[in-house]
């Protein structure tokens, strides 16, 4: 049975689930849950909210049971559900977050982030991307889909996805470079070469002293 389910694609699994097959649902859950969570996590920002969105998504899939539904692009349908739930979540948060209610740590500040805040710089740049560009990168970087799979999910061609992702990465790089703190950081290779250079100088000094 498990082997049979493994060989089915997501559309067939969803179709089986709708007709009352619990195993098909669990197989679908196993395949997609992590990817859904990562997608939601990147959009909503916290593990707790992402878990809520993920749970709500699966509950909606369960609610399809017994209904006459025709879904050809099952993964696309599921991710569309996740996306809508994420957007609802963000809207709700925007409505309820007041500056006075925020913790001090969440207040915006002018200070330059410390060199350990690489993630913060990248995240800031990420947030400034257009939604479609961000979505493509999230599906690729966080959910682990290939451009072809993303094209299937979004209902477009792999070429469009590839172009969109390239454009998004390019923008992201440019935004990261234009960040005030960027020049405080050194790339891994630079650090390595600097370390090597420093090591050579130290050895030379030691040799000279000897």
């Amino acid at each position: 049975m498990t082997r049979l389910l493994n060989s089915l694609d997501e559309a067939e699994l969803l179709s089986r689930h709708v007709t009352g097959d619990n195993d098909a649902f669990l197989e679908l859950f196993t395949r997609l849950n992590y990817r859904i969570f990562m997608y939601a996590r990147k959009f909503v920002g916290t593990n707790e909210l992402a878990e809520d969105v993920t749970q709500e998504t699966w509950e909606r899939i369960i609610a399809l049971r017994g209904h006459a539904v025709e879904i050809d692009n099952a993964v696309g349908y599921i991710f569309k559900t996740v996306r809508n739930l994420c957007l609802n979540c963000l809207k709700a948060r925007r409505r309820t977050d007041y500056f006075s209610q925020l913790e001090e740590s969440h207040h915006p500040n002018e200070s330059v982030p410390s060199p350990s805040d690489v993630e913060e710089i990248v995240n800031e740049a990420f947030e400034r991307l257009a939604f479609k560009e961000k979505e493509v990168l999230i599906l690729q970087y966080y959910s682990g889909y290939t451009p072809t799979e993303i094209a299937g999910i979004l209902g477009t061609t792999p070429e469009v996805v590839w172009k969109r992702a390239s454009r998004a990465r390019k923008k992201l790089r440019e935004m990261v470079i234009s960040h005030p703190a960027f020049h405080l950081f050194r790339s891994g290779k630079q650090k390595e070469s600097e370390r090597k250079a420093n090591g050579k100088k130290t050895k030379q000094r030691e040799n000279v002293s000897i």
Binding site: K42, V118, E119, I121, V122, N123, Y141, Y142, R169, L172, R173, E174, V176, I177, F182, F185, R186, S187, G188, K189, Q190
Partner: peptide, 13 residues
């Protein structure tokens, strides 16, 4: 360097 930063940030996140 920017691309390296992005990749390492994504990996850590």
């Amino acid at each position: 360097r920017a691309e390296e930063m992005i990749r390492s940030a994504v990996t850590r996140e």
